[in-house]
């Protein structure tokens, strides 16, 4: 269920599609005049969807006994939210061990035995890949495990990152749009490497609206790290995974839900990432 554009005039999300050729950032685009086509969405929002790569080493301890660490390749998508290249994505995408840890904490028992599991992750070689293929080293600045959010930034010490500063094609959030239960929204993401990381747009429906303690919309689909948009093409927030309890006695079934974390919440996290303690 989409709402007329006029009902969302307060929405002031803008898309800053900065030129990568060295020119200054493009003029902000303040929302579309009508429900955009998929092609228009890809053109408008696509450049802000960047690829993250790197190595994540996960070490696990079961009831205090450490298992050998395992390194895996990180290949994920994130959304650039300012021209300096600040990227927001799902914490579970950046740190897969976190989901396991959370599941175990939510309801970790196996065959009636209490099992304490600790998962630690170490990231290295993190890189952001700009739409023109430029790769710059990145640092993971802050993680909010409860809301499944992670903030990354280009490594300011790197020459290529310095060159890109102020020129990232960004989706700049300055306020929050609204959605209601049974609204249909769109999730913009990227497919895997086997599909050459093409853009994909998925319609999903808002199934619940959570207001306390922190606002979010529960939706019935989408992939974590994806961009949630209203039907008429305005930015709503980020798709995250909200993990429920896991019952290992019933074949590891997990109750997990996809949730859209509103942009205002994201901005708040980015703001805390800017605080001296998080740097």
């Amino acid at each position: 269920m989409s709402r007329p554009y006029s009902a969302a005039l307060l929405s002031t999300f803008v898309i800053l599609l900065g030129s990568l050729g060295g020119a200054s950032a493009a003029e902000p685009i303040v929302g579309p005049a009508a429900a955009p086509s998929a092609k228009e969405i890809f053109t408008r929002f696509g450049p802000a969807l960047v690829q993250l790569s790197g190595t994540v080493k996960t070490t696990m301890k079961f009831s205090g006994n450490a298992m050998p660490g395992r390194e895996s390749r990180l290949d994920a998508a994130g959304v650039v939210i300012d021209a300096d290249g600040t990227v927001i994505t799902s914490a579970n995408v950046v740190d897969p061990g976190r989901m396991m840890q959370k599941a175990m904490k939510a309801g970790g028992s196996m065959s009636g035995m209490d099992m304490k599991m600790d998962v630690a992750s170490e990231h290295s070689n993190l890189r952001l890949r700009a739409p023109d293929g430029t790769q710059v080293p990145a640092v993971l600045v802050i993680i909010d495990g409860d809301r499944d959010l992670a903030v990354l930034r280009p490594d300011a010490k790197d020459a290529a990152a310095q060159k890109m500063a102020g020129k990232w094609p960004a989706l700049a959030a300055v306020a929050t749009d609204k959605a209601e239960v049974l609204d249909q929204i769109l999730v913009l993401g990227r497919l895997g490497a086997q599909f050459d990381r093409q853009f994909a747009l998925t319609p999903v429906q808002v199934t619940a609206q959570i207001s306390k303690p922190r606002p979010c919309w529960i939706v019935n689909g989408g992939s974590p790290g994806g961009v949630a948009l209203t039907r008429d093409g305005r930015y709503l927030g980020l798709i995250t995974i909200q993990l429920g309890e896991v019952d290992f006695s019933s074949m590891m079934s997990a109750s997990q839900g996809m949730a859209v974390v509103p942009a205002a919440e994201i901005l708040e996290l980015v703001k805390s990432a800017n605080a001296p303690a998080a740097k």
């Binding site: 992750s121 990231h123 290295s124 640092v139 993680i143 909010d144 409860d146 809301r147 996290l269």
Partner: peptide
């Protein structure tokens, strides 16, 4: 690239 692994990220409070 032989950069040392960066310190772990801060956890949101």
């Amino acid at each position: 690239s032989d950069a040392e692994p960066p310190p772990p990220p801060a956890e949101a409070g």
